[in-house]
C-alpha cells in the first residue's frame, strides 16, 4: 500500500506540473483528492491493515495529501496572479487624454495687482481707506492745495457733472477725507485704491478710466527718510529683493517736497532695455511730504505733525509686471486676455 501511495504521489505531481489553467487544476484536485478520488480509493483499503501498520500508512497517506495540496495551492496562486495581471492589462487607459478640470475663474489682473499691493501694505500696518468716485471740487482740488484757477489744474482735465461735482481725477481726495474723519488723531496710516477718471483720448497707454493707489502717513516726526524707507521696502516686496529706488524732485500741489520715484527696471534689472528705454529705471510712483496747507485744511497743525503721501498707477504696474502693451485690454475684458491671469 505504501508503494501505491508513493506511486500515486508521483503520478499526481507529474500530472499537476502540466496543468495549464485553473480549470485543469481543479479537475486534478477532484481526480486525486476528491471524495471519490484516487487517494480516498487507496486509503479505503486501510481496514485490511494490521493495527501496527494502520497509523504508519495513515501518516504516509497524509504526507501524500499534503504534498499534492501544496503543489495545487502554489499553482493556484500563480494562476490567480496571472489572471489579475491579465485583467489589469485589459483595463489600461490612455493617460494622455485630458481629465475633468475643476472649474477655475480668475481675478481681473488689475484687482490682482491691487490685492497684491494691499497685502504688502497691510503687512506694514496700513488699513485700506475708500472714498466716493464722484467728488466735490473741494475734496478733489481745493483741500489738496489746488484752489480754483491754479495753473496745476491744467495737469488734469476732468469730467465734470455740475459746477461743483466731478469724477475724481485722483485718489488723493481720500487723503483729505481721511484726515477730516480722523479729527486730528494720529497715527494715520492708510492706502486707498480706486478708480479715477481723466479726460484723455484712449490709446495704447491712455485710458479715461484707470486705477490709482494712494498712500498717506501722518504722525509726529514723520521724515522724508521714512518715505524713502517705506517705498524701498514696498518696491522690494513688489518687484523683487534686488530692486533699487531713485528719487527725483518733482511737483505736486499737495506735497512739498514732491518726489518722483523710479525703480530699477522690472525687465532688465537696471542694465537697460526696450522697456526702460535703456535708462535702467522706470517711473512708478509720485510722492512727497504732505504740504503744510493740506495738513492745515485736514485739521493737523503742520508745526506738530508731518506726513508723507504717495500714489501709483495700477494699470502701469500691471502693464510692466505682465508685459501688457495696450491699456485698453484691461477694459475690453476679452476672455482670452483675462484667462491668462487665472493662475498663481
Amino acid at each position: 500500500m505504501r508503494e501505491r501511495l508513493e506511486q500515486l504521489k508521483q503520478e499526481a505531481l507529474s500530472e499537476l506540473s502540466g496543468a495549464a489553467d485553473a480549470g485543469q487544476l481543479n479537475d486534478l484536485r477532484v481526480k486525486y483528492l476528491g471524495k471519490k478520488g484516487a487517494l480516498t480509493e487507496i486509503l479505503r483499503g486501510m481496514g485490511s491493515l494490521s493495527a501496527e501498520e494502520r497509523p504508519v500508512i495513515g501518516q504516509v497517506g497524509n504526507e501524500v495529501r499534503g504534498a499534492i495540496e501544496a503543489v495545487i495551492e502554489e499553482k493556484q496562486q500563480k494562476f490567480e496572479q496571472l489572471e489579475t495581471e491579465r485583467r489589469l492589462a485589459a483595463e489600461k487607459l490612455d493617460v494622455t487624454l485630458p481629465g475633468r478640470p475643476l472649474k477655475q475663474g480668475g481675478v481681473h489682473p488689475l484687482n490682482r495687482i491691487i490685492q497684491e499691493i494691499e497685502d504688502i501694505f497691510i503687512g506694514m500696518g496700513y488699513t485700506i481707506a475708500e472714498g466716493p468716485e464722484v467728488e466735490t471740487d473741494y475734496f478733489n482740488f481745493e483741500a489738496l492745495n489746488l484752489p480754483k484757477n491754479h495753473p496745476a489744474r491744467d495737469m488734469q482735465d476732468s469730467f465734470y457733472l455740475t459746477e461743483d461735482l466731478l469724477m475724481r481725477t485722483q485718489t488723493s481726495p481720500v487723503q483729505a477725507r481721511t484726515m477730516k474723519a480722523m479729527e486730528g488723531e494720529v497715527p494715520v496710516k492708510i492706502i486707498c485704491p480706486g478708480k479715477v477718471y481723466r479726460r484723455d483720448d484712449d490709446d495704447a497707454t491712455h485710458s479715461f478710466q484707470f486705477n490709482q493707489i494712494e498712500g498717506l502717513v501722518i504722525g509726529k516726526n514723520i521724515r522724508m527718510s521714512d518715505l524713502k524707507g517705506t517705498l524701498l521696502q514696498f518696491s522690494r516686496k513688489m518687484f523683487g529683493p534686488n530692486t533699487q529706488i531713485r528719487l527725483r524732485p518733482s511737483f505736486f500741489p499737495f506735497t512739498e517736497p514732491s518726489i518722483e520715484v523710479d525703480v530699477t527696471c522690472v525687465k532688465c534689472g537696471g542694465k537697460g532695455c526696450r522697456v526702460c528705454k535703456n535708462s535702467g529705471w522706470l517711473e512708478i510712483l509720485g510722492s512727497g511730504m504732505v504740504h503744510p496747507r493740506v495738513l492745515e485744511m485736514g485739521g493737523y497743525d503742520p508745526e506738530q505733525y508731518t506726513g508723507f503721501a504717495f500714489g501709483m498707477g495700477v494699470e502701469r504696474i500691471a502693464m510692466l509686471k505682465y508685459g501688457v502693451d495696450d491699456i485698453r485690454h484691461f477694459y475690453n475684458n476679452d476672455i482670452r486676455f483675462l484667462e491668462q491671469f487665472a493662475r498663481h
Binding site: 506694514m124 527718510s225 517736497p257
Partner: peptide, 25 residues
C-alpha cells in the same frame, strides 16, 4: 536745499512710534 543737496544722500529709515495694526474693514 534737499534737491540741491541730493535726494540720493537722504538716508533710508523706518517710521518711529507705535506699531499699527493693518487690515481690511
Amino acid at each position: 536745499v534737499a534737491r540741491l543737496y541730493g535726494y540720493d544722500k537722504i538716508p533710508t529709515t523706518a517710521i518711529e512710534g507705535p506699531t499699527t495694526q493693518g487690515g481690511y474693514s
